[in-house]
């Protein structure tokens, strides 16, 4: 299984990601001020940094990857979260496209609601696996961070994004 995502753990800033909307940022777990910290729910191997929505209502990061020939199985996973009882969130998706750009498959993870986080600030793991639709040539992995209601801070959070594909 090969992980096709570059810098899925935000440890290299936004390297590898294309910003297609808003102003996504990379935050540190030692920021404090209510942001997720080392002791909050999240990945065991969380490193120092994670993705956040910045100060835009909608912030979107994307990586388009070429699928290996003879792709068979895939696994998409990520840690997605938000702040306390607010409904800001992170959604991770992969869309499989054929050579003409027609969608052949779609998997959507999250966003994780405040209820699913039990009203706690932190990140929760979500994953899906399946068969790469035959005829797929590229996979578009999109991380969308959304702000609920007013205010300025988009508290959709994500970390440890992974998209692995097995070739026959």
């Amino acid at each position: 299984m090969t992980d096709l995502i570059v810098n899925g753990d935000a440890e290299q800033g936004l390297t590898g990601w294309l910003t297609v909307a808003g102003a996504p940022v990379v935050l540190r777990y030692d920021t404090g001020q209510g942001y997720p910290g080392p002791g909050d729910p999240g990945p065991a191997q969380r490193g120092a940094s994670f993705f956040g929505g910045g100060n835009a209502a909608l912030s979107t990061l994307r990586q388009s990857v070429t699928l290996p020939r003879r792709s068979s199985q895939f696994v998409l996973s990520g840690w997605l979260g938000g702040y306390a009882a607010q409904q800001d969130g992170a959604r991770l998706s992969v869309e499989f496209l054929d050579s003409g750009g027609t969608p052949r498959g779609l998997v959507v993870l999250g966003p994780v609601t405040a209820e699913e986080r039990s009203g706690r600030t932190g990140l929760v793991e979500r994953s899906a696996r399946g068969t790469v639709p035959p005829g797929s040539r590229t996979a578009v992995v999109t991380l969308q961070l959304t702000r609920s209601g007013g205010g300025s801070s988009n508290d959709g959070y994500a970390d440890n994004i992974s998209f692995t594909v097995e070739a026959r």
């Binding site: 409904q87 800001d88 969130g89 959604r91 966003p111 405040a114 969308q144 959304t146 609920s148």
Partner: peptide
């Protein structure tokens, strides 16, 4: 609208 339940 950006609330998580609605986005889902």
């Amino acid at each position: 609208e950006g609330s998580a339940p609605f986005v889902k």
